[in-house]
Design a protein around this nucleic acid. Structure first.
Lengths: 255, 255
DNA sequence: TTGCTCCTCACGTCACGTGAGGTGGC
DNA sequence: TTGCTCCTCACGTCACGTGAGGTGGC
């Protein structure tokens, strides 16, 4: 029996058989006069046994281990471990499918959540298309999505109540403009502290909500700080400083 | 924000971030004076979106595809396809776990089936440890295992009834010895045809059963022929010829 | 000075797939 | 002569992991 026939018998490719020779899973058989591998019955049986284990999900090292005669490691133990691993994989796949199903259940744009789309639209309406901070404010929304449902839910609610109130919205728009103007100032410019003071009661209910979540203790305990670091990525020093000051105010307010 | 912080924010390694740069999933950010990558808010958001899709099970090409703005391929379609693929994987894993569970449910040696172990023992008892054909006969049992349950079931039954009958067993032992003696003869030696004739009613109920399965049409329609090729792997020419003759007899008997 | 982070190659992982270039048997 | 199978390298796949060797900031 030559390699092609062996492979067909067992249902693999000839490359697979050669690979098993290479890694020592299957002994190299004698060669016939023309240099072709000449397989015996025992090789066919061996290959079948190898494939049986591979198809159950063992990797080639484990198969080699399982097929040694010294039984150093119990086959039963191997299978128990394998089953546990497969159970994990199954759970993972189910989780993914669950998340995909809830995505597909929603209509509209799948690339962002419904909440995100709604708040983004509201932001555009409130700020107007030419507002210098609109782009950044919208990017910040992208940081809310990876948070847990409870965390992001509070934040979306915070945005909605804020943007829904004409007076707050107008203040927010103005604060946003002032924040952009910080870009060219020094971090210790008095305008920085003034803005942080003025923003205290208007902007940032989202962050406040996050801080409260932190205090309550469910979700990621450092979500708020991580948000803060992410938001300040690439900001001008004065803007970063302003955010820091706001953060301190909010921390005091929530404690 | 430098690469380490970005990676920690999003929950990946720095190597992963660099890999995404390499394949173009994440744009290379500007460098600060020391050559370090300096990330902006938009990079954080982008990386979060990439990871969300990766963790759902998309490969990096698909992620890139899904995150292009031209929406050339509908995200909904991508998710539907992905779900179908995940459903397949889940079924595969369940199949494996099912097979493992039935293995674990049986006591004793997990490397071979109960039937195999039983028939192998019976073969040893009937042939005796010094019989020249015992090793091969036992190897042949290894070819029965990969067959479907119905096919192998018939064959094990065939073996059991044969080996359980004192008279048949004695004949089989004798035929086995004669078969080994063929090794040094020419394929056209009259002893070959004689043995095939004599074996007709004794050896090979297993193959006969397989041939019947073939005729009935369930299972692999060429299982018997494949068995024959495998069994004759590495045999002496006269032995192969003898098997062929037997096979023809059996085919006639079953038609 | 020490420890930490960053930088750029570049090879390794896992189980094979896929040519590349050549030879033997019908 | 043509088509098929076999042979031996040896690079490619996929998403990074893991050093190797070197540099900047506290």
């Amino acid at each position: 029996v030559r390699i092609g026939e062996l492979a067909e018998l067992v249902g693999v490719t000839t490359r697979t058989v050669r690979h098993y020779h290479h890694v020592g899973l299957l002994p190299e058989p004698a060669r016939s006069a023309n240099g072709y591998r000449a397989y015996q019955l025992r090789d066919v049986v061996r290959l079948f046994r190898v494939r049986r284990l591979v198809e159950l999900g063992l990797n080639l090292d484990e198969v080699a281990d399982a097929l040694t005669d010294d039984e150093s490691r119990d086959l039963r133990e191997i299978f128990v471990d394998l089953d546990a691993e497969l159970a994990l994989q199954e759970q993972e796949i189910r989780g993914r499918r669950h998340r995909i199903a809830s995505l597909l259940a929603a209509e509209g744009d799948l690339s962002v959540s419904r909440d995100h789309a709604e708040v983004s639209t509201a932001l555009g309406a409130v700020f107007g298309p030419d507002h210098p901070g609109l782009e950044r404010e919208r990017l910040v929304l992208g940081l809310v999505e990876p948070l847990s449902g409870a965390e992001s839910g509070r934040i979306w609610d915070g945005y909605r109540s804020l943007l829904g109130d004409e007076q707050f919205a107008a203040q927010m728009r103005r604060l946003g403009e002032r924040f952009e103007e910080l870009a060219d100032l020094a971090p210790d410019d008095p305008a920085v502290a003034r803005l942080a003071e003025d923003a205290r009661d208007v902007v940032g209910p989202a962050v406040l909500a996050l801080a409260q979540e932190d205090a309550v203790g469910d979700g990621d305990p450092h979500a708020a700080e991580r948000m803060l670091r992410a938001v300040s990525a690439g900001m001008a020093p004065a803007q970063t400083r302003c955010l820091e000051l706001m953060w301190r105010h909010w921390q005091q307010a929530s404690s």
